[in-house]
Design a protein around this nucleic acid. Structure first.
Lengths: 209, 209
DNA sequence: CACCCTATCGCATATTTATGTGATTTTTAT
DNA sequence: ATAAAAATCACATAAATATGCGATAGGGTG
């Protein structure tokens, strides 16, 4: 009981066997499927349903990245750990997007891989520091730090009205809700727009989501 | 040579001094700036240009998170390590989005802090599994382009216009972008509203975010 | 072919939103 | 206490949005 059931897909035979060997030796780990290709992966997901998948990112025929999608399409909750070589920058990003939850280098020591499997199974993510850095760089580029409203020194009232604005209320409704006149709503919103440097509520919706 | 030049901003005097003390004792580390606030940080970035910044996440006046932006605005390559008392996921997440490359708990032992500084300087990232997971999840959610609208059988054109609507474009801009007349934009939006059962674009923003 | 869906356009009108230029009162901070 | 900031209201105008009632043209399908 409490066994972590693991699926390994890796085309390099030596590495695959080494991996299976030391993973299998961990007392609460169990290798339930091992293969050099992804051809039967759908059956495995459906019938074996492993707890953790360890995929080579660079499989022949069907790449590990497509593998992530194949697996996630059937079981979106699947925990997938990717094994990669550092040079695969673009592939790492694609894996991230596809939904893998951990990234290790093949040269990482066995203990680290074991630790990663356990972490992933426990709802965490593990990545090698260098990969993490790449992902973070990408992340900051993609997600240009959502400017939280705290940085615009809005007053309490302005913040309150901004929230109602975002919630989609009309000015009339905001006025009623806040017990103020429509003109006062105008007044506040003018100031909010000035502070946020926008000129329509759609801009707020677009920029602060 | 090869000295790692470090900037420390931490408001707690005792901790700040302790940090500076043991960081300064590492043979290839050098504390080039130390302060309890971020008020002169811009000058530091410009004139001192440290290799690694160690920021308290919870500074008074200007928070560490805003500090990240201040620094990154001037030097996007800056290596920033955050210090926090407990694992406040939200703040750490915000920090990462702002561009921090790692974080540490104040209770972490000196060796870990030294290791983190060295890792960050060496092009890695340091973060814990939950934060990593959160970031990865954020990524996977962001990427699959707005799947929520698929259930309203919008036509291709309607979907296209809806996206522009959500991106905050005015009708005029949408018309220009799609090479159609303003009236046609009206026409499409009427149909979109009917299908989504809304009566204003703010409702869309509010309901589908 | 007749029918339906999609995309296009026109005209009309009412409402909502955006923006400017004020003024007055209340609260907050020095 | 007094100056500054925040919140309130008024009046005015322009622009954008919401909505109704059309019409036409092309594509695809039974």
């Amino acid at each position: 009981m409490g066994m972590i059931r693991i699926c390994i897909v890796e085309d390099n035979m030596a590495y695959r066997n080494a991996l299976a060997l030391f993973i299998g030796r961990v007392s609460d780990f169990e290798v339930v499927h091992i293969s050099d290709t992804l051809e039967d992966i759908e059956n495995v997901v459906r019938n074996v349903n492993p707890d953790v998948y360890v995929l080579d990112i660079d499989l022949p025929v069907t790449s590990g990245i497509r593998g992530i999608r194949l697996i996630k399409d059937i079981n979106p909750e699947a925990n997938i750990l990717m094994l990669t070589v550092f040079e695969d920058e673009e592939k790492i990003f694609q894996s991230v997007k596809a939904g893998a939850l951990g990234y290790l280098l093949k040269k990482d020591p066995p203990e680290r891989i074991i630790h990663a499997i356990r972490s992933i199974h426990g709802g965490e993510s593990i990545m090698n520091g260098q990969i993490a850095r790449k992902i973070l760089n990408y992340f900051t580029k993609q997600v240009p730090a959502k400017p939280s409203f705290e940085d615009y020194n809005l007053t309490k009232r302005e913040t309150e009205i901004l929230m109602l604005l975002i919630d989609g209320l009309t000015y009339k409704e905001i006025a009623a809700r806040c017990f103020i006149s429509l003109d006062t709503v105008f007044s506040h919103i003018k100031k909010i727009y000035a502070k946020l440097k926008v000129n329509s509520r759609s801009e707020i919706a677009a920029r602060f989501r």
